[in-house]
Amino acid sequence: MPVKPEILKRKTVARSRLFRADELHLRFANGEERIYEKLCTGGPGAVLVVPLLDKDTLLLVREYAAGIEDYHLAFPKGAIDQGETLMDAANRELKEEIGYGARELVFLKKVHLSPAYMEHGINIVLARDLYPERLEGDEPEPIEVESWPLADVSGLLQRDDVCEGRTLAALLLAQEWLKHHG
């Protein structure tokens, strides 16, 4: 296992309402020194939920994404609030975004979209045994919920509006978990 580089200096070089960028001055085990920049997290984390309405049906949400300046289809997700557990956050996001709670929540994995320069990670949770319950969310407009047959994952992957890497990773992790745990 390689030896982690030594952090010689860390400083914040940019800050916005949502993001902070830090500069890291590093010395590697071989003596080489480099400066890296990274986007830093600001809170307790985030969660993405793969909801199964029943054993055969996925639920996804269509929301506006400012990064691509268009609507896309993805799994419900959101920030974990201060003092909230991961599973409480997963259930809250489900209730806010799709109008269901879950009796069974299974942690699948924490993934990082771009670990080379982003500290941000997201916890992926599978939700089963859903029941109707709606909470008021913070979305600027009503979210459209779309169901999709679990048997047609290949069709989902081919859709142009299914483009978020975290949703694609979550789908793979959920499929693998379901293969072994039904």
Rank of each mutant, 00 (worst) to 15 (best):
V47T: 01
P51V: 04
A66F: 12
I122Q: 04
D152A: 08
D129N: 13
D54F: 06
P149Q: 06
W148K: 08
D70Q: 08
I80N: 09
S154H: 13
G121F: 03
L105C: 06
I98V: 13
A127C: 00
L60P: 01
M87H: 13
V106I: 14
L135M: 12
P149K: 01
K109G: 05
D81W: 15
Y64S: 01
H72V: 06
P44D: 11
P149F: 00
L48I: 10
L48H: 01
A66M: 10
L60F: 10
A151P: 02
P115G: 00
L126C: 07
R128I: 01
V50Q: 04
E133T: 12
V111H: 02
E97G: 01
G67Y: 14
R62W: 07
I68N: 06
G121I: 02
E141F: 12
Y131N: 08
G155A: 02
I143Q: 12
S114Q: 14
Y117L: 05
L53P: 00
D129W: 08
L108F: 04
T41S: 04
K109Q: 15
V50M: 01
D129L: 15
G78D: 05
G43W: 03
R62Q: 10
E63M: 15
L126D: 06
V61I: 14
W148P: 03
L150Y: 00
L150C: 00
R159D: 01
V125N: 04
S147A: 12
R134Y: 10
G67R: 13
E63A: 13
E144V: 12
E96Y: 02
A102Q: 04
A89R: 11
Y71M: 09
L105N: 01
A127K: 03
E63K: 15
A102R: 08
D129C: 06
G42M: 12
D129K: 13
E119S: 04
T57P: 02
D81G: 11
L52T: 00
V106M: 03
